[in-house]
């Protein structure tokens, strides 16, 4: 006699266990490729190094009179590192972006033919996506923390450490990670629907990077990038994080207003991600294209 299809169980305990199981599966997959796994742990250093060296050569050292005249912040190293820490938390500072993100994890499952298998498990599809995302959230948190700590210990970079600054910086970091999660879910849904991992890079990663202002000033870049940057939620997230730890926000004069904007951005991006995810899943169910590749 054929056993009945297992019922979809529910309850927070089951959801959390399922989520952790998918995360653990993603960790196992990443660790299978030893070189890639090692690279995932250190690639933020490879990405930030050329920028640090370029900034050092162009400002002939650590202090930049021009940056000071434009922002009141003389230390270009602090400006660049804080921008990059925010960038790392967003998961767009890594060089193997195509593979090392939720969309990359989903893409890998697609080309190895295991995504359908995961989607017929008696757990929610969103739990599968969130489980993969969870691994990358942990990885990018590790990137952000090690970059901050490494720059502090090795280069003596100089953020303004006050109690309120640390609290706001931590809140901004949590918002950055929440944005990362939303962007990741959007990326995974787009990758599943379009069967093309490059779409995510093209639509989200590269444009977001160019107009984020992570290591340059948005107000001096040419149009249309300047207008796009002012409309880019990631730019506000990066600026809020840097503003919290330098007390000099650049996009909005008031730090309080910038954090209110950031909170709104996180909620709106989360809602947009959920809407896109639901729409893409319905489309694939309707058209029967989940297994197509």
């Amino acid at each position: 006699m054929i056993a009945p299809t297992p019922e979809l169980r529910s309850g927070p305990g089951h959801e959390i266990r399922s989520l952790l199981r998918v995360t653990s599966n993603q960790l196992n997959q990443s660790m299978r490729y030893t070189n890639k796994f090692r690279l995932e742990l250190i690639d933020h250093v490879f990405i930030v190094l050329p920028v640090i060296l370029t900034a050092w050569a162009f400002s002939d050292g650590r202090d930049s009179a021009r940056l000071e005249s434009l922002t009141g912040l003389p230390d270009q190293l602090t400006f660049v590192i804080l921008g990059f820490v925010a960038f790392s938390a967003l998961g767009i500072g890594n060089m193997i972006m195509q593979d090392s993100h939720v969309a990359g994890g989903v893409w890998y499952e697609m080309i190895t033919g295991t995504i359908e298998r995961m989607f017929v498990l008696p757990i929610r599809r969103v739990t599968v996506i969130l489980g993969i995302a969870n691994y990358y959230l942990l990885l990018f948190t590790f990137h952000a923390i090690t970059l901050f700590a490494g720059a502090w210990l090795l280069f003596g970079f100089d953020p303004e450490i006050t109690m309120s600054g640390v609290l706001l910086g931590t809140y901004a970091l949590v918002c950055l990670l929440a944005l990362n999660l939303s962007i990741g879910i959007m990326g995974a849904a787009l990758t599943l629907a379009t069967k093309d991992a490059q779409t995510y890079l093209l639509v989200i990663h590269r444009p977001a990077a160019i107009v984020s202002g992570a290591y340059f000033l948005i107000e001096i870049i040419p149009q249309p990038f300047k207008s796009l940057a002012y409309a880019n939620p990631i730019a506000y997230a990066v600026d809020a994080f840097r503003g919290a730890l330098t007390d000099k926000p650049l996009l909005i004069d008031s730090l309080a207003v910038e954090f209110a904007v950031l909170t709104g951005i996180v909620i709106a991006t989360g809602a947009a991600a959920a809407a896109i995810y639901i729409r893409m899943m319905r489309k694939m169910d309707r058209e029967g294209t989940i297994g197509m590749f």
Partner: peptide, 9 residues
């Protein structure tokens, strides 16, 4: 972005 970094510095 590298040109923008130079524009900044």
């Amino acid at each position: 972005p590298f040109v923008f970094l130079a524009d900044t510095l």
